[in-house]
Write a protein that binds this DNA or RNA. Structure first.
Length: 564
DNA sequence: TCTGGGGTCCTTGGACTG
DNA sequence: TCTGCAGTCCAAGGACCC
């Protein structure tokens, strides 16, 4: 790694130049804050060796890159991004944030005795896999999706823990709040999971290596460290693809910037698995074409890729290999399906037992559908046989009503289960609902009466209603979570911070319909009588719906006092 | 050796419809 | 009335992600 470096004014060690990846020079800007720079010096003999500390993924990545590396045509100077940044046109600035070994890191944070020791979070039953392994455990070859039994053989002295999702959700929510602060009014925030998110800062920057952006990201990482007690890897680039690749490239606890114009030269030496969407099957097919690196993929005729991978994957992968990814950062994404499934401790043959399990899981699905205010048109029963073969049977309900209750789901699923051959036993059974339609869909404004009345009811006011079913409202120390800084809502209106968070139990009664959202968080926003936005959030963040209604009711306009 | 749970998206092929 | 065709919907399965 040939680098120039210096302490930037935001208290970070800034390294710029060519990162040599198995012989191929890759221009990058790498920002290390003080704490990580210290770790780097103490853990590694040289900067060039620090990939060694990154665990299994780093080792896999190196194996996939051929020793001679692909052709490299980067015209940039070793001085790197800053010079180049001044010469190019403004482009998108996208961040990918990934909390390092998230579940295990939360456990180590909350249980000091586990710090510095191998920790494995996942299924602790005989049939289970690893959800997350701490980096100390990864050093022994334990990785995600590995069977728990295999992990125990590889690292028997690790602490094996069952997941504590409530703690993870609390930590994730706090990090997302910090990210929302980072994004600011012009930025877009797209959570992907509890531990990952994209942020689009295009509106506030001139490019990925804009100094203002980098200072803000360094400050964000410091807040994650001090306020949440976790570390985050951040990639910054001109697209989701480049941001994601950058954050994966040097985790954990690193900030890697790919300047505009450097996309192809950064991607070219990487193995094809570095591209999101390339798994074992696609990697194998590409190997059949003699393609093992992204550079080779970029040089492959797109028609050949389409013939092997299909139209969508072929064209998308070819574009990705060229560093092209136009996907926008989308702040609001509605879930498209809700499902529940379970692997039995031992294979089940008894039809009555299977039916009872199916009904129980239908109840779990129904709870989440109701909490999110949606119904589903298609019911799918999924099974895995004793020999691990998987199959699914689905049916779409006639008419537009769909299903939502446990009884409706179970009734639709029963004939699908009956069509499944359970001879020899099933090891897994699941039921899901897709083709979701919101209970609020198709209704015209204005909404009268009960909706707003319920929103204004004391039990729904933020800070007054955190019931047992509400979301976690405390930080990791049990103290009340801070409200985020005031920020304009959709209409540019700034409601009081104290009114923006709450565990609202929203009940809506337009006509005969009743929508309960008390199983999730009802996040109430508003700018006064006349407009109310309700964000329904289910038990999983993936299930969320937002609707805005104009409220046209003279009686309500006299509500005393308006909440905000 | 053993392989979770909850998702998304895509492809393929058949049925249906105009 | 029959056939061909294109478009759409649906079912099933595969691949991938975290």
């Amino acid at each position: 790694m040939r680098l120039g470096w210096g302490w930037a004014r935001w208290r970070a060690l800034r390294l710029t130049g060519d990162l040599r990846v198995d012989g191929a020079p890759v221009p990058v800007a790498l920002l290390l804050d003080r704490a990580f720079a210290h770790n780097l010096r103490t853990r590694c003999a040289s900067v060039g060796a620090f990939g060694r500390t990154c665990g299994r993924r780093g080792a896999d990545y190196r194996r996939r890159v051929p020793p001679d590396g692909p052709e490299h045509t980067d015209p940039r100077s070793p001085q790197g991004s800053a010079d180049a940044g001044a010469a190019r046109a403004p482009g998108r600035t996208v961040l990918h944030v990934d909390l390092d070994a998230f579940y295990a890191a939360v456990e180590q944070r909350d249980k000091p005795s586990l710090r510095g020791k191998p920790v494995v979070v996942g299924g602790t039953a005989w049939r289970g896999v690893v959800a997350t392994a701490s980096y100390e455990a990864r050093a022994f070859g334990v990785g995600s999706a590995m069977p728990t039994a295999a992990a125990r053989r590889a690292c028997p002295w690790a602490a094996y823990l069952a997941p504590r999702f409530a703690a993870y959700r609390t930590a994730s929510a706090r990090v997302m709040e910090l990210l929302a602060d980072l994004a600011g009014p012009p930025g877009l925030l797209e959570p992907l999971s509890l531990d990952e998110a994209y942020v689009d800062l295009s509106g506030s920057s001139s490019g990925p290596d804009d100094e203002g952006v980098l200072a803000a990201v360094v400050a964000f990482r410091e807040r994650v460290r001090t306020e949440v007690g976790l570390t985050a890897s951040v990639g910054v680039g001109t697209s989701k693809l480049m941001a994601k690749v950058a954050s994966d490239l040097r985790k954990p606890d690193a900030l890697l910037v790919v300047p505009a114009g450097a996309e192809r030269s950064v991607l070219a030496p990487l193995g094809v698995r570095a591209l999101p969407g390339v798994g074992p099957a696609t990697e194998s097919r590409l190997a059949g074409l003699g393609v093992s690196t992204v550079g080779q993929l970029a040089a492959t005729d797109e028609r050949e890729l389409v013939s092997v991978l299909g139209r969508a994957a072929g064209t998308a992968l070819h574009a990705a290999a060229l560093g092209v990814d136009p996907r926008p950062v989308v702040p609001e994404r509605e879930a498209k399906s809700v499902s529940a499934e379970e692997t039995f401790p031992t294979d089940v043959v008894d039809r009555a037992v299977l039916a009872a399990e199916l009904h129980r899981m239908a109840g779990r699905v129904a709870e989440r559908l109701l909490a999110s205010g949606v119904r589903g048109r298609t019911v799918t029963v999924k099974a895995r046989r004793y020999d691990f073969t998987a199959l699914a049977r689905s049916a779409t309900t006639a008419g537009g009503a769909g299903v939502a209750t446990a009884e409706e789901i179970a009734a639709a699923a029963a004939p699908l289960l009956a069509a499944i051959d359970a001879t020899g036993g099933l090891r897994l059974l699941g039921v899901g609902v897709s083709g979701l339609v919101g209970a609020l869909d198709g209704l015209d404004d204005p909404v009268q009466g009960d909706l707003l009345a319920d929103l204004l009811a004391p039990s729904t006011l933020p800070g007054q209603s955190a019931g047992a079913d509400g979301p976690d409202q405390t930080d990791e120390h049990g103290a009340p979570a801070d409200a985020p800084e005031d920020a304009p809502d959709d209409d540019g209106v700034v409601p009081p911070a104290s009114a923006r968070r709450g565990a609202a139990a929203v009940v809506w009664r337009p006509g005969q319909d009743v929508l309960h959202a008390e199983h999730g968080a009802g996040w109430v926003q508003g700018s006064g009588v006349g407009r109310v936005t309700v964000r329904f959030e289910g038990p999983r963040t993936a299930v969320g719906r937002v609707r805005t209604f104009a409220v046209d009711d003279p009686a309500l306009s006299e509500a005393d006092p308006p909440v905000w």
